[in-house]
Design a binder for these strands. Structure first.
Length: 271
DNA sequence: ATGGTAGACACTCTA
């Protein structure tokens, strides 16, 4: 079972890129963030024609929005609101593991778009940063409450935090930059412990190795200094840990025509 | 220290 997560930054503008990804990778499940379209205008028919008739979409006007696209049926589709906002940052659904030949049961897939948090890393001065920290706290509590040792779960998305020193181009220079501050990393660590979740990408790519999934648009040429960050993640619960077969970050996608500022990440499981 | 680019939408917000 191949699963791709991608902050696509407008699904309508980037439909050709999505088609390219599908042609090259053909994932079984695709989780998108920042679709930036209301659910009613989501290009569901185009995407069904690309081989993904099963779709779970939570979209709003202009901002955010998440979607799960699947070749095989999705069940128990749920959208959840956090921090008292209806801002389309979390959708989850289950696939049937037995659709992939093995004897795996249902696999619950969570797709998150965690608030970016603005520029100033001080919750007292910046309500966006306060929102980000609150979002981490609320989701941590929720995951803790529904913890189940035997449950096969995957959590993906743009978590907007780069936890490791090797997840950013310069640990020292980003310590006070939103996405890599100690308070955010601590919050993300707690969220990870709440699953408890295993960082699937780092099971394959050793933590010593620098790897990024996002490069700012505000640079003439992203390849010159390679000032990236790993903001996008794939986490799994213990029952799936031994089933991780591969992880791939599509760095090349940052150079595609009209690129998103994030690149897709694909994890392959032997279910 | 600053400002750089991109997307949605309607002029300014968010990243």
């Amino acid at each position: 079972m191949k699963l791709t997560t991608w902050n696509i930054n407008s699904v309508r503008l980037r439909l050709p890129s999505l088609a390219k990804l599908i042609k090259e990778v053909s994932p079984d499940v695709i989780c998108l963030q920042e679709i930036k379209v209301i659910t009613e205008l989501f290009p569901g028919e185009d995407i069904a024609a690309l081989g993904y008739p099963h779709q779970a979409v939570a979209g709003m006007k202009g901002y955010n929005g998440v979607a799960i696209l699947s070749k095989t049926p999705l069940s128990k589709i749920t959208t959840k609101n956090w921090c008292g906002k209806e801002d389309c940052r979390h959708i989850f659904a289950s696939i049937d593991g037995s659709d992939f030949g093995g004897k795996a049961g249902p696999v619950e897939i969570h797709n998150f778009y965690i608030p970016a948090g603005g520029d100033e890393p001080d919750p007292k001065k910046n309500e966006k940063f306060a929102h980000k920290l609150k979002f981490l706290e609320e989701t941590t509590k929720w995951h803790k409450g529904r913890r189940k040792k035997t449950a096969a779960r995957i959590m993906v998305g743009d978590l907007n935090i780069a936890p490791l020193e090797t997840d950013v181009w310069s640990h020292k220079q980003l310590l006070k930059v939103v996405s890599h501050t100690p308070v955010e990393v601590e919050g993300l660590d707690k969220l990870q412990a709440a699953g408890p979740w295993v960082d699937a990408v780092r099971e394959i790519i050793p933590p010593e190795k620098s790897v990024f999934s996002w490069w700012s648009y505000r640079s003439k040429d992203w390849t010159v200094n390679d000032r990236g960050r790993r903001l996008d993640h794939v986490w799994v619960t213990e029952p799936l840990k031994s089933k991780i077969a591969d992880a791939h970050i599509f760095r090349d996608a940052r150079s595609w025509e009209k690129p998103s500022d994030h690149v897709p990440i694909t994890i392959t499981f032997k279910l």
